[in-house]
Every structure is written in structure tokens, then in C-alpha cells.
Design a protein around this nucleic acid. Sequence first.
DNA 1: TAAAGATATTCGAATATGATTATATAACAA
DNA 2: TTGTTATATAATCATATTCGAATATCTTTA
Lengths: 96, 96
Amino acid sequence: MAKVKYNYLRAAKFLKALSHPTRLMIVNELALGKKCVNDIKELVQVNQPNISQHLSLLKLNGIVDSRQNGKMKCYFLKDEAMMREMFNNLKKNKLI
Amino acid sequence: MAKVKYNYLRAAKFLKALSHPTRLMIVNELALGKKCVNDIKELVQVNQPNISQHLSLLKLNGIVDSRQNGKMKCYFLKDEAMMREMFNNLKKNKLI
DNA sequence: TAAAGATATTCGAATATGATTATATAACAA
DNA sequence: TTGTTATATAATCATATTCGAATATCTTTA
């Protein structure tokens, strides 16, 4: 059992990391281009610590990465193509 | 904010429903064909009440549906094509 | 070095989730 | 009707998530 389930653990974690409205919004914005925390905060309309928390979770799960840019920190998707596919699939099926 | 997030709520719920190793296994099995609870239990190696709980959650989220078949209950994917796409994407990206 | 701006971390409370065990229900057969 | 098989539900406990408030940590500039 454990062995079989293991194959699905990575995928489950990945999906779980995406399965929050705020995080989906963030990822959707990043699919349009690299953005710093404050931009994201404005676009997503969530307070700064919360944005940071969600970003950190996304980063921990290998969905985004970041680069310091002066006193700002810019986040971007690690795999834009894959995320586009995911979102296209969701859109095609009227889930977004 | 609330309004914007609302657009992502359905997708988030959908992804969340999928984001568990056991449920991914179940869905993967159902992608190969309709199966009753006991079959799923054997394939997934999880005890019966737990399987039922996961199935009920999948059903609640519109991912599977069921039909009574004698004293057995068979579950099947509501949208095989979409699930195949999801899984193909995950596989393509080495998440499964 | 001090101040200001941008982002991150920590903590607590509320809530949600998951597994296990026990029990209930439904369908059928004898 | 009684027993048996198949599945569902409920209760409980442990753990995980989420958010907001407070505070900390850079990074740059004065």
C-alpha cells in the first residue's frame, strides 16, 4: 500500500498546493508575467502577510521561485508551460 | 476581492478534492473503468469506511457518480476525458 | 547609522481534514 | 424472516490549514 500510494504523493502535494482560491489567483497572475509581492497583493486583494504565506507555500512546493530585485522580491512560475496547460484544462471545463 | 476570488473557488475545490493520494489512486483506477467499492478497496488497499469516505467526497465534488448494481455500488468518472487530460498532464510532468 | 519601504516570520484561534472503530443500512439469498 | 454481504454513516481523536495581528528581517537611501 505505502509503496503504491507513494507514486501519488507528489501529485497530491502539487495539487494541494494549488487548491486554494488565493493561490490560484496568484499563479494565474504569474502566468501573465513575473511580479513582485506588492503587485500581487494589489492584484489579488489580500493582505501582505497572507500573500507572503501563500507565496512561501507555493515556493516550497516547487511551483514558483523568486529573485530579489532591489528591495523588492519578484516571483515567477517555475514551469509556465505546465501551468498554462493546467489552467487551460480548468478553463476548458468551466472550472474557472 | 470576494468577487474575484469567487471565480477561483470552484477550481480550488475541484483541485482540493483531487489532492489526496488515495483519491488520486481511486480516480486513476476509475479512469480504467467503472468499479464497485470492494474492487476499489482491493486495488487501493485502504479499509472500507475510508474508501467510502473518499468516494463520497469525490461524488460531492462532481468528480465521480455511482450506480447501484445488485448489492454492490459501482462508481465511475463523470468526465473521463477531462480526468485523462489532468492525469496526462501530471504524468508528462513527472508528478505521477 | 538611522529611517523607510518591502517582505517574511511567528503565534494563536478557528476550522477543516483524515484515519480508525463501531455501528447502521440496503440488497439479496436461504 | 433470518442471515450474510456490501456499503454508508457517526463518533472520536489527532493533525493540518487558514487567517489576522504583531513583530522581525532585509534592502536601500538619507
